[in-house]
């Protein structure tokens, strides 16, 4: 519980950093990586589909409440919940492909957001939107995914070792701890 509260708090902090700083950087292509999405993916990789979906929903709900929000409540929660579930599910079914899952979900997230925006938010789907707006964001997400996801899994795993795919790592750590003690 404590660890989950810490993760949720970090997500909240990340969200504020995202809107006040990252989104305003003059990056080429006028896009920026979605750090919160990547954090949810990392959390889901470490803790599985169910926890990933719950964390995605929570983070999305924060996103619906955080000030520059002009959409209806629940839309972003839906997006991140789906992404968290898919990431966790994918990682559960093939634990060895962690990086591929992270990259895939990083690229998938913006697409889910567009679909939810078109279906529920009254946005108009256009060809221009798909080529001009989506590709840069997907690219930035994929670029930022390895460090972000690694950091997120690190934060989540650091306090609990009964993880989906940390058996060998846990064994190694246990050995190190045992060796380090006097």
């Amino acid at each position: 519980m404590n660890r989950d509260a810490l993760s949720a708090g970090l997500v909240l902090l990340l969200m504020a950093v995202q809107v006040t700083f990252v989104n305003r950087l003059p990056l080429p292509g006028d896009a920026a990586p979605d750090l919160v999405l990547l954090a949810v993916v990392g959390y889901a990789l470490a803790r599985g589909a169910r926890a990933g979906a719950v964390m995605g929903f929570t983070a999305g709900l924060f996103g619906d409440l955080l000030p520059p929000a002009a959409h209806e409540m629940g839309q972003y929660a839906l997006v991140l919940c789906l992404v968290g579930f898919v990431a966790g599910r994918w990682a559960e079914s093939r634990p060895e492909a962690g990086l591929a899952v992270a990259l895939g979900c990083a690229a998938l997230g913006p697409v889910v957001a567009v679909v939810v925006g078109v279906v529920f938010g009254g946005a108009e789907a256009g060809v221009v939107a798909l080529t001009g707006g989506l590709l840069p964001v997907m690219l930035y997400n994929v670029l930022a995914a390895p460090p972000m996801v690694w950091a997120a899994t690190r934060v989540v795993r650091g306090r609990d070792r009964s993880r989906v795919r940390s058996r060998e790592r846990g064994a190694r750590r246990a050995g190190r701890l045992a060796g380090g003690r006097p």
Partner: peptide, 16 residues
């Protein structure tokens, strides 16, 4: 003054 910005393509574009 714009203090925060959110842009998710195809989803929303808003500033604080």
């Amino acid at each position: 003054q714009v203090i925060a910005r959110r842009n998710v393509p195809g989803f929303e574009e808003a500033v604080e």
